[in-house]
């Protein structure tokens, strides 16, 4: 790939999605965009870049962005963020929101839906506590393609075996030929919408819990800071943020602080979430 083509694509992706593409990722561009070029009736990657440059085709730019974002996801990924949700966050929220009975959860990089659906399943497992609550789980992603799959709630045999205990498969899925479909009860608990983390967050409202895992790693420092500071503004004072195992707020922003001894869990620096959850500060 020509250097100027790489630079053009890297710049476009950075502007559109915050995605940072270093020169060692040329192979990724080639392997993911060549099929897209062919699908668009173009012979080569060069031709694709040319079309983007000359026409600034918005649809094509969106397709390129979608092809380059990583969408790997599985149920109960890394376990800990879900154990903490069940063991710490929910008991705290049950008390703190006991009067209003309203809970809003945001999965900011929902991909094909496994993360918000895992949270919905956990709520369903203690439904007697939550049945008269107004609970919103919102899953957003920049890629409309993955959101289509998320909304459908259908997963392959391989996908339902990565992280999902068999008892939960029996309880919450139905088999339809080669795929496994989540029951409507669970699917209805999650709303999916397309959202770019570079856009402003005002339309989203305020959340009690935010999951933003394995997406900041693709951003540069300034973008990480921007996104985290906007998240702090739309998180309740006693709210909780979960980041991926390889991510941190340290050295990026001081609007959040890590909860000691609880990997991947963060609270607002001026908030009182730890006290409510009975965690040591």
């Amino acid at each position: 790939m020509r250097t100027e083509d790489f630079e053009f694509l890297a710049k476009t992706l950075k502007e559109r999605s915050g995605l940072m593409l270093t020169p060692d990722k040329v192979y990724l561009l080639e392997s993911r965009l060549t099929p897209l070029a062919r699908k668009s009736g173009l012979d080569t990657l060069e031709a694709l870049v040319q079309k983007l440059r000359v026409h600034g085709d918005q649809g094509l730019i969106r397709d390129v962005t979608e092809a380059m974002t990583t969408n790997e996801s599985f149920f109960f990924r890394d376990n800990t963020p879900f154990d903490l949700f069940k063991g710490k966050v929910l008991p705290a929220m049950e008390k703190a929101r006991g009067t209003r009975k309203r809970l809003r959860i945001w999965c900011a990089a929902a991909s094909t839906g496994q993360e918000p659906y895992s949270l919905a399943i956990l709520l369903r497992e203690s439904w007697f506590k939550w049945r008269d609550w107004n609970i919103e789980i919102i899953g957003t992603d920049i890629s409309t393609q993955v959101l289509e799959k998320a909304k459908a709630g259908t997963y392959s045999q391989f996908e339902v075996q990565r992280g999902l205990p068999i008892q939960l498969l029996i309880k919450y899925f139905a088999q339809e030929g080669d795929v496994w479909r989540l029951n409507d009860d669970i699917r209805k608990m999650v709303t999916f919408r397309s959202f770019n983390l570079l856009d402003n967050f005002f339309s989203l409202g305020t959340f009690d819990v935010i999951y933003c895992r394995n997406v900041l790693i693709y951003f540069d420092q300034a973008t990480k800071t921007l996104v985290l500071e906007r998240m702090a503004k739309c998180l309740a004072k006693d709210g909780t943020l979960f980041l991926g195992a390889a991510e941190t707020v340290l050295g990026i922003t001081d609007v959040f602080r890590p909860v000691r001894g609880q990997r991947g869990m963060y609270v607002g620096s001026d908030g009182d979430a730890e006290k409510i959850m009975g965690l040591n500060q």
Binding site: Q157, F158, Q161, R162, G163, P165, I166
Partner: peptide, 14 residues
């Protein structure tokens, strides 16, 4: 637990 073949390392580990 119950594993449906084909399986791989990831599934067994999970």
């Amino acid at each position: 637990e119950y594993i449906m073949k084909p399986f791989d390392r990831e599934i067994i580990e999970a």
